[in-house]
Nucleic acid binder design. Structure first.
Lengths: 181, 181, 181, 181
DNA sequence: TATGAATGAGCTTTCATTCAT
DNA sequence: CATGAATGAAAGCTCATTCAT
């Protein structure tokens, strides 16, 4: 029973799946049924598995745009480390699954993405330190850890409390990151 | 049809379940199948449900000892806020499910336990502030949040990395908590 | 661990179980968990099984009073067949499990009770026929069947509709579908 | 790992489930375990739930043919109300679960089917009344109730007795208990 | 003899994954 | 290549029944 409506190029399926995954993971968390992603994409289960053989590869694709946005921000010479923190925090609040994914370092593909984020933060760190906004002994790893902590605490909070908890967490962390005056 | 494998007194089942739950939750996380707990306790499914009608009541029982240990520590006049942080960190490293549970504030029974921990930390906070080790504007809620953040980051790290990550997290947080000099 | 409160004669347990069974069967239907009966009676599971080895024996005991009430009614020379129908209908509405039980003729003990009811109705049937209220060719089995039908229809109706449906059923049964000739 | 036992086309599963449901519901009643239906259909549990997300939808599908047969009968201008009663009685005897289902008015989907049956009976009622076979004050609801009563009594009788009891019930319903005046 | 904790089979339901079409 | 029906292994939970105390 061939479906006459479908003669679009197959690459569209992949894109639809990525969009759907972003929405579903944001809504239902990183453990959402993959079925829900396929359904939302209007795509068969088999196609999902063809493009993304496991949950991790799908999650990576879904949140690639998050990292790309960070890259664009960093590429802007006027942006600061604080801007990066803000962006990552907003991304975490929009989809706690993003940080939940980044923290699953068991998978090497995810670890690569984590390092990518850390390198991006590293590019803005010296500027923040020169401006006297961050202690000189703070490392890029510290920056990434701070982001991960905020994301982690948000992911374990009730939806309604997430923003407040994230702000509270940043207040604590900023004082830790900031130099003594 | 008597079961020759069982000759333990019946009431010990509850205790066996608590022990098994602690182990299983530590191993597999707070979402571990309750079946696994029953199996590990050498107990039928029904017994588990008799003693603990839902997952939360089992988790509360499993980690009650953690809070009790904190209470004993706080009761010791010689103990400090830092000692409390150390204990909670060790507990989190031994079973990240402990903090994962405490962060599930949706359930009122758990919220009560969270407040209990926060109150215990509150008892040691003024001393730490008087000693000049903690900023005067740090609240008990900040202390609890710090613990939750460390637990959250540990729970999302590989087992092998947990201790190092927790220490790194505390380094960041302590500077945030400590007064400017 | 002996319970000092319990040194009442064992026969009280049986009575408590019968009362509890009547209530529970009325509330939850004939398939109610036997556990609920024991709990309501304030009696151990084992005692329930000692006195009533199976569900049927418990149900028989629970509804023995219903049959006894019918016997008392029939013994009254002033009572009529219609009175019997009314009583049985009220009993059915109070606990549809009563008729559900009576209709489980698979079990010989229940069949005996059914015959007992039929015989009681038989005693009032000739009077009703002499009074010109019931056709001469109606048999005791017909009477019992009518009661069973009303009970059956009540048991398959929503609680709120039962009385109305029972009345509607009696109207049909009394007059029939066919016109008088 | 292909399964050599299965080479039927996949879409036949739905049909197999309907057939199996009819058989299982007829055998074991409307409360039969859905597992038994899947097993009898030679189908996985998941397939059953894909096609029929709940018991009611399965039961409706299983007995849809019953209502369809009634519709065909009513569509025949030569058929009478008595024919309809006969058909419904035969259907009830073949599977008492059919009427048990129809009587579960709690579910709106079932209520719709019940009304459908009542409307079908209503179409034949005026003819029967004109022919002097049914009282003029009998309503369609009375007709449906009569069918439900016969089905209910059959469902509560031993398999061997069902036909006799149904006939006895119809005799009562047709003529009534009261004498002609 | 009474208790009620313990058992474990059994039910409903979900979901990752496969595979015929 | 895409589809989506099918699979079946769990998971949560309930309850009749047994049996140590």
């Amino acid at each position: 029973m061939p479906d006459p409506r479908r003669d679009v190029p197959p690459a569209e399926n992949r894109a639809a799946l990525v969009v759907a995954a972003r929405e579903v993971f944001a809504d239902q968390g990183i453990d959402a049924p993959l079925r829900a992603v396929a359904r939302r994409a209007g795509v068969g289960q088999g196609s999902l598995y063809r493009h993304f053989p496991d949950r991790v590869s799908l999650a990576l694709a879904a949140f690639e745009e998050n990292v790309a946005a960070l890259e664009r921000l960093v590429a802007d010479p006027g942006s600061t480390l604080a801007d990066c923190f803000d962006l990552l925090t907003e991304q975490s609040l929009a989809a706690v699954a993003f940080i939940a994914m980044l923290n699953d370092l068991e998978d090497p593909r995810i670890a690569v993405q984590g390092e990518r984020v850390e390198e991006l933060l590293a590019q803005k760190l010296p500027g923040a330190q020169r401006a006297g906004l961050v202690r000189p002994d703070v490392s890029p790893a510290d920056c990434f850890l701070a982001v991960a902590m905020v994301g982690a605490i948000a992911s374990q909070s009730l939806v309604a409390d997430r923003r407040v908890r994230a702000e509270q967490a940043w207040r604590l962390l900023r004082r830790g990151l900031a130099p003594e005056r």
